[in-house]
């Protein structure tokens, strides 16, 4: 591949990842995850009492996610508060995480996950999902596995991993496409695939293959960060 990425990375190279667990003392579980300049923090509260009562489910506990870009996280100040975009991302984050959770032990309760993006440089939802997955584990919630998430981009005809803002705005050739992907670690089960742009159907298999590889790396970092709090 002749492609030169704007920040000089190789096509299959992630940005520098940092992960830390236990950053918010008042939360039951918390974590920070960053891809380069994209920084996400997640806090987990609960299982706790669920209000309004009509949302309570006597069969199982429920998961409630809230994703928010903080006003200072982007170049032009973002108007604070929920938006159409943040509501959608909250919902897909919830769906990406729910398949690994087992909340049957906690009927009528809620697990709240708050995800805040401190700095945004594209791929914020994937960073948020990675942070939330670690925070849920840290909160001692019964889980089948961790969730790893990464974005795969297509710049003109070349596939790249973990797109940043400059690449998201790429205009040449076929333009830029990106897909946020989340999967259950060490398995072939995907919990989130969100395509933004155009892509040939036969390319998707390649994108997933790239995501698999990147998720292995991400999983190792998540695992290390979690185990670090026990030492």
């Amino acid at each position: 591949m002749a492609l030169k990425r704007i920040d000089g990375r190789k096509a299959n190279e992630l940005r520098k990842i940092t992960a830390k667990v236990g950053i918010i003392p008042n939360a039951d579980g918390s974590a920070m995850f960053s891809f380069g300049n994209t920084v996400a923090i997640a806090a987990v509260y609960g299982p706790r009492m669920l209000h309004p009562q009509h949302m309570q489910n006597p069969a199982t506990g429920i998961l409630r996610c809230n994703y928010d870009l903080l006003s200072f996280s982007v170049h032009d100040r973002k108007r604070p508060g929920p938006s159409r975009r943040s509501q959608e991302i909250s919902k897909v984050t919830e769906w990406a995480l729910l398949p690994v959770l087992d909340l049957k032990e906690f009927p009528n309760t809620v697990v709240d996950v708050q995800i805040y993006i401190l700095q945004a440089d594209a791929s914020t939802r994937t960073a948020g999902i990675n942070a939330a997955s670690m925070a849920l584990a840290h909160a001692g919630i019964p889980m089948k596995n961790l969730v790893c998430s990464v974005s795969i981009g297509k710049l003109d005809k070349d596939l790249v991993i973990d797109v940043n803002k400059a690449e998201e705005d790429f205009k040449d050739g076929e333009g830029a496409t990106d897909m946020a992907i989340a999967k259950i670690a060490n398995s072939n089960k995907f919990t989130l695939m969100q395509l933004d742009g155009k892509v040939q159907p036969e390319v998707i298999a390649d994108m997933l293959k790239m995501a698999n590889k990147a998720c292995e790396e991400i999983y190792k970092i998540q695992e290390k960060a979690l185990k670090a709090v026990l030492e």
Binding site: G22, D28, R48, A137, A139, G140
Partner: peptide, 24 residues
């Protein structure tokens, strides 16, 4: 493991001890 914690082998039984999270 179904949760995060310390794994312990007590004879044949394997359990994971909770070290973080809310009160159970």
């Amino acid at each position: 493991a179904s949760r995060f914690g310390l794994a312990e082998e007590a004879g044949r039984i394997i359990k994971v001890i909770a070290v973080t999270g809310s009160f159970i």
